[in-house]
Design a binder for these strands. Structure first.
Lengths: 345, 345
DNA sequence: CTGTTAGCGCGTTCAC
DNA sequence: GTGAACGCGCTAACAG
């Protein structure tokens, strides 16, 4: 293979063009070509133009692999999310991608499927790729993960929740505070028996924090947390519908349910439509995530507006600041949230 | 910096561990360490275990940058989507990510924002990173993009639609056929005046193909395409609602509308609920994309089930086949679609 | 402003 | 089964 990476399929140019090919053709040294690409100001205009022209002519595309190896810095950021498919992360990823792209950075995305061990494997792969920063949508990690990023000295941003033991930097909102405040807000609006539905708290830290917030709110209201008012379900529209029916039928006097996960509230609302249960008169509904949909449904749904896009943007920005060395350390941003009251409560 | 990449922030181990550090400690040559990592069978069990143990002890993480440079092959695949945020792509990305991860490959994701020039820039960045394969959710490209991938000789999969002029491989369904068949299906069910709403066909190839399919179906039914029945809108729930109202009020005799884009049908359905227009008796609704939601709404919505996940999976698989050299050339998969008839029509 | 030298960390090749 | 030499393509440091 050496010196001949010709493809066997008959496609491609046959030869990868190297910097020295450009240099030879433009009658300069490879170093000058390198400078034209990364520090054009240090090359005379005439030479620069000649080199640029040559690059265009022969279609040279620099090898970043070699560049990164030589300079010990890549322009790649690694991102681990629990689930790419979950549209809730899509906004955040988009925010990150936008900032990174403007800065000329690439984004490497991976999916941990909620498994901390898989997360460790992915972080290891990122370290192996020598990414210059890592974003984790998760605040709990294996010891191995912690050790990996510590030793690698790579800047890390955690998000998804405020991190109790930050690896490095944090950009998020507080799931605890959000659930607590929504619960208090419902109480303030006069609801007496407030039901709470979350995703399974066993595997999901965010779900656990939200439940903690709900419980704290109930206590501060002088209401002992009633197990009959609380339930956990899997993700999905159908699960939301089931949880609704379950709680409405089993918890007497229930007047509102706070759905603290994904699309649960929508599933519940649709179930109400199906059964002809008027919302909010028969049962009121509040949601955690302010999906677009919730302001278009009939009735519109009360929810928490979370700064998804901003989390993505800021995560990228603090990472870039750190990489560029212009950074304050120990960044820990709480981007907050907002309660949006609508017709469903 | 050379030889001393110590961080100034006091974090990190201070020194990156290299293969030769492992070798020294395990009392073997670097070559043996390399073999243990990539071809363990060629090393005696005793040596192998000693090396493995040493790697664990000192927490060595191989430098893939150097490895890829030396071997001229990376384990990274580049993916360009029009919009990360669009949940329709999320399923496909997940499918790709799943397959790639099982094969030990990394995914680099970028967002072209529907701009062909931006796509070219991203492809160029991918080539610069020496990715070993590229997936494009798009079938139209600049000449520059075509030239880039041709010269680089990188395997490419196009998707999003059947490619009229494939760069290389294609994995998709036919937007044209899907829209045509849905239109014919509506006619077969007895609908006489079939309205059609798409996204703007000017910037969106898929929207154009879908409209072409609708028009072809109408012609084959002996019905001249009536401009009064067709409209184009931006993406979003509100746009779907507006399109609905516009068509219902302006096209007399309209009995069904086929919404050929994103969440338009949902926006329209919700608008019907808001206005108290019964679906399908006052106006029937059909959707293009079979979002989960559509089988939970009241009424449930007729739509096209597209093989999103499969597209992602197969795209990754044909790419991997090609990279591993075990491939048939000119792969062109049409994964088809399915019409799901529900209550809304 | 431009060139020279010396690696970056690893894989390939070939010898032992 | 194991090791030495060389180079992947580029950039840092220094010299001129």
């Amino acid at each position: 293979m050496r010196g001949d990476s010709r493809r066997s399929n008959g496609r491609g140019s046959g030869q990868t063009i190297r910097m020295r090919d450009v240099a030879r053709r433009a009658d300069v040294s490879p170093m000058t070509v390198s400078r034209v690409l990364r520090d054009p100001g240090k090359v005379s205009e005439e030479t620069r133009n000649r080199v640029l022209e040559t690059i265009r002519e022969i279609g040279y595309v620099p090898n970043k692999l070699a560049g990164s190896l030589a300079s010990s810095q890549s322009n790649v950021i690694g991102l681990v999310v629990p689930s790419i498919r979950n549209s809730l992360f899509a906004d955040t990823i988009q925010g990150t991608a936008d900032v990174l792209r403007a800065a000329g950075f690439q984004l490497m995305v991976a999916d941990s499927g909620q498994s901390l061990d898989d997360e460790e494997a992915l972080v290891s792969a990122f370290v192996a790729q020598r990414v210059s920063g890592i974003i984790l949508h998760n605040t709990r990690h294996t010891d191995g993960t912690r050790e990996l990023v510590r030793r690698a000295g790579i800047p890390v941003v955690e998000t998804g929740d405020l991190a109790p033991e930050p690896l490095d930097m944090t950009v998020s909102y507080s799931n605890y505070a959000a659930a607590r405040d929504m619960t208090l807000s419902l109480a303030r609006r006069g609801y007496r028996r407030i039901g709470f539905v979350s995703l399974h708290t066993k595997e999901n830290d965010r779900a656990r924090e939200r439940r903690r917030g709900y419980v704290a709110a109930m206590k501060s209201l002088g209401r002992a947390p009633d197990p009959a008012l609380m339930t956990q379900v899997a993700s999905g529209l159908a699960a939301g519908a089931q949880a609704l029916v379950h709680l409405v039928q089993s918890a007497r006097g229930l007047d509102v349910i706070f759905f603290a996960g994904d699309v649960l509230a929508i599933g519940a609302l649709l179930e109400c439509q199906r059964r002809g249960w008027p919302v909010p008169s028969r049962i009121a509904i509040a949601s955690f995530d302010d999906l677009d949909l919730l302001q278009h449904t009939v009735p519109t749904v009360t929810s928490l507006r979370l700064p998804r896009r901003e989390i993505g943007r800021y995560s990228a920005e603090v990472l870039l600041d750190r990489i560029r060395g212009s950074s304050t350390r120990n960044v820990s941003l709480d981007l907050g949230f907002e309660i949006i009251e609508r017709e469903s409560t």
